[in-house]
Amino acid sequence: MRVLIKAGRSLARRVLARMGFVAPRRTPIAKFLGSEIKSEVTKPQYDNDSRVKRARKNAKHLDSLLDLRGKHVLEIGPHLGDLSVVLASEYGCDVVGIDPLTHPNWPEVQQHPRIRLIEGDIANPPPLENESFDLIISFVVWEHIRHPWSALQHCQRLLKPTGKKFLRANLYRSAIASHLYRQVKEPWPHLMFSPDEIRARFNRPDLGWAFWVNKLTYQQYLFYFRQLGFFITHEHFWQVHFDREYYDANEQTLGLYPEWDLKTDFFEVVLEFDPRQPKRPIPDPVYRLPKWRKYLARKWLRFQGA
């Protein structure tokens, strides 16, 4: 009976959230211990067929979470525009992409009437109309943004109050965050060695632009989301193989970091606003005292002052 009551309450809350009467409930971070984690990460391939296949797979995943069809979408970091093309051609989306790096194939991609690609930084974007996008999406881009707080602020500004933001990002403390996993077989080289030491130790004079990753932890992301009024309605984690033998041999350095951070490679979230008070900061209950404790605290201070 208790199970039925709990299931009924959960269903009722989801229905009320859809209707706008209650805020959507965030998946707790503790759930990573269960089915919210994948234990393997497939290294991406970059030939044309693999790119198209990956774009269609990502679009299908987005559609299951966001209901893509006919939406006005802002893609952060479209790169070669593979996903933008699929969204416009197969889902009827109007897509604006913003990326600090232009690519030779952009003129061809923009021949599609529903696609516009802009050279720029989402942390300091070119003029775009406030609250003009239904969806904002980004795949493994946010870790390379140098001002992620400003970028999230602009996403909040550009997103409609009923809009949704999809974010998948690499975390700095993961074993493959250096983006050197094709050439360097040791995990966590960016935590173990300085850039100069990596160049010398692994004979890698050019580390590549992707080596630079901001150092945000997932807890810092959560703090940013709360400040901007984003509730998490979908949460997912990926973990790569954790090399216990390597960790034990180098615990003097790696032991400075939480083990969960070292194991967790990517996170993925869908962010939404409270329909009753969109974009209003979300108080952290850790810092909120119950009313009776506030009352006693005031009485105690008055007593001490007397």
Rank of each mutant, 00 (worst) to 15 (best):
M1Q: 06
R2I: 14
R2M: 09
L4N: 01
G8S: 11
G8A: 10
S10K: 13
A12I: 02
R14G: 00
L16R: 09
A17F: 11
V22N: 05
V22I: 15
T27C: 10
A30R: 12
I37P: 01
K38P: 00
K38S: 13
S39Y: 08
S39V: 00
S39C: 07
E40P: 03
V41A: 08
V41P: 03
V41K: 12
T42I: 15
K43G: 08
P44T: 04
Y46W: 05
N48W: 05
N48M: 01
R51I: 07
R51T: 01
K53Y: 03
R54M: 03
A55K: 08
N58I: 10
N58W: 00
L62V: 02
D63H: 15
L65P: 05
R69A: 05
L80F: 01
D82H: 07
D82P: 00
L83C: 06
L83K: 00
V85D: 00
V85F: 04
V85I: 12
V86L: 07
V86T: 07
L87R: 11
L87D: 01
E90Y: 02
D94N: 10
V95F: 12
V96N: 01
V96F: 01
P104T: 02
V109H: 00
V109M: 00
Q110A: 06
Q111S: 03
P113L: 14
I115W: 11
R116H: 13
L117R: 06
L117M: 13
L117A: 06
G120I: 10
N124D: 05
N124F: 09
P126D: 11
P127A: 05
P127T: 04
E131M: 04
F133E: 02
V141C: 03
W142N: 05
E143W: 00
H144F: 08
H144G: 05
H144K: 04
P148S: 12
S150D: 09
S150A: 14
S150N: 07
A151R: 11
Q153S: 09
R157L: 15
K160R: 14
P161E: 11
P161L: 09
P161Q: 05
T162F: 07
K164G: 08
K164T: 05
F166T: 07
L167P: 06
R168F: 05
R168E: 02
A169I: 00
L171I: 06
I176N: 06
A177L: 02
L180H: 13
Y181D: 04
P189D: 12
H190L: 08
I198G: 11
A200D: 10
R204F: 00
D206H: 04
W212Q: 14
L216G: 06
Y218R: 06
Q219C: 03
Q220C: 11
Q220V: 09
R226C: 09
R226G: 01
G229V: 04
G229L: 03
F230W: 13
F231E: 01
T233D: 02
T233A: 07
E235W: 06
F237R: 02
V240E: 11
E245S: 13
Y246F: 15
G255P: 15
Y257W: 04
E259K: 15
W260Y: 07
L262D: 04
K263D: 06
T264N: 11
F266I: 02
F267T: 02
L271N: 03
L271Y: 12
V286G: 02
Y287W: 15
R288C: 15
R288S: 10
R288H: 12
W292Q: 13
Y295A: 07
L301Q: 13
Q304W: 08
Q304S: 12
Q304M: 14
